[in-house]
Amino acid sequence: MWKWITKFASPMHFYLLVNRLTPWLGWGAAILFVAGVYGALFYAPADYQQGESFRIIYVHVPSAWMSMFIYMVMAAAGGAGLIWKTKVSDAIARSSAPLGASFTFLALATGSLWGKPMWGTWWVWDARLTSELILLFLYLGYIALQSAIDDKRTAARAGAILALVGVVNIPIIHYSVEWWNTLHQGPTITKLDTPSIHIDMLIPLLIMALAFNLYYAAMVLIRARHEIIEQEKNSKWVQDLIIDKVAV
C-alpha cells in the first residue's frame, strides 16, 4: 500500500494519474453542482423566518468549510514536502493557496450579501466573520511570500513553514476573536441555528459541499500538473511526452 502511494510522489506518475483522474473529478463536480443548485433552489423549503434569502447558505457554508479545509491541506502538503522533499506535495501546497483564498473571499462575500437583508448591514464584526477575514489575510500573506521568492522550491518550503505556523495560530486566533466579541458586544444578533437544520435543507447542502470538494480536487490537481510540467520541462519524460503528442 505504502509503495503504491509513494509511486505517485514521482512527478511522472503523478502527471499520468492526474490525467486519468481529473475528468472524473471535474464531471462529478459539475453533475453534483447542478443537482445541488436544483435542490437548493427548488427542493429545499423556504425558511420560516428568513424566507428565500436563506438559500445563499448553499454557497456560503460549503465555501466556508472549504476555506478551512484547504488551509489544512496546504499545511499538510507543505509539511510533507518539508519532510520527504517531494516535488508533488510542494506543487499541491502552492496550487492550493489561490483556491483557498478564493473560497475564503467567496464565504465573506456571500456572508455579506446575506447580512444586508438579515442584519441590515453589509458587515458585522461577528466572531466568525472576523476569523474568516483573518484567514483571508493568512492566505494573502502566503501568496505574497510565494511571489516574492524567485526560486520555486525555496518558495514552496518557506511557504510550508508559514502555513504550519498559521495552523498553530488558527485555534488561538479563533478563540481569542470569539472571546473578544463576547467581551465587546452582547449577543445582539440571533445567528442561524445550524445544528437544528431540516433534513430537506440539509441534503442539498451536503451535495453542494461534495461538489465544492470535487471541484477543488480537480482544480488543485490541474494547477499542480501545470507546475510539475513547468518544473520538469528539462527532464526526459516531459520531452518524450511532447514528442509523443506531436507525433500522434
Binding site: 483573518i134 489575510f137 500573506g141 511570500l145 518557506a158 508559514l162
Partner: peptide
Amino acid sequence: ALTMGVRSSGMLQALLILPLIMP
C-alpha cells in the same frame, strides 16, 4: 527569516506578522 534578501521585504514582513499577532 522567511523574507531575508527578498525585494521590498519590509512590507512583506508586516503582511506576514500582522495576522499572526491579532490574538
